[in-house]
Amino acid sequence: MKNRRNKKMLFPSTAVLLILTLMAALLTCTPGKAESAAQQWTINHDISFTVVKDSTVLQTGGQCVSFTGSLRAACLEQTSSTIFVLLYRDDGLYVDFYRQGSKELVCGTFPMPFSAENVSLEAGVDPTGKILYICCRMGQGSGEVYRIQETGGEAFCIAETSSANVIWNSQAAVQQANTASASSQESIPESKSESQPNSMVSSEESSAPESQVQPESRQESSTASVSSAASTPQQINRIYRCSGPLTVAELQQMVLELHPQQIAGQETVQVFTSKGVERKTGSLTTGDVLQDRREGKVETVQLVIPGDLCGGGRPNQASYSLLRSCVAGGAPLSGLTAYAADMTQPSGDIAADSQPELTAADLLLLKRAADIA
Rank of each mutant, 00 (worst) to 15 (best):
S13D: 09
V16L: 15
L20H: 07
L27M: 05
G32L: 02
G32P: 00
A38S: 10
I43V: 15
S48W: 07
F49I: 01
T56D: 09
G69F: 06
S70L: 07
L71N: 01
L76P: 00
E77N: 06
T82C: 09
D91L: 09
G101N: 05
V106P: 05
G108L: 04
F114E: 06
A116T: 12
V119E: 04
V119T: 08
L121Y: 06
I131Y: 07
C135D: 11
M138S: 12
Q140I: 10
V145L: 01
E154Y: 06
A155S: 08
F156T: 02
F156E: 05
C157P: 00
A159Q: 03
E160W: 00
E160Q: 04
Q175N: 12
N178W: 10
A182S: 04
S199P: 02
S203W: 06
E216F: 11
Q219W: 13
A224Y: 08
A224N: 09
A229Y: 09
S231Q: 10
P233Y: 07
Q234N: 02
N237E: 13
N237D: 15
R238A: 12
R238V: 07
I239R: 09
E250A: 14
Q252E: 12
L258P: 04
L290V: 00
D292Q: 13
G296H: 08
G296W: 09
V298E: 13
V298L: 13
G307S: 06
R314N: 04
Q317A: 13
G329N: 07
L333W: 12
Q345D: 05
P356S: 15
T359K: 12
A361Y: 06
R368F: 07
A369L: 08
A369R: 00
I372V: 15
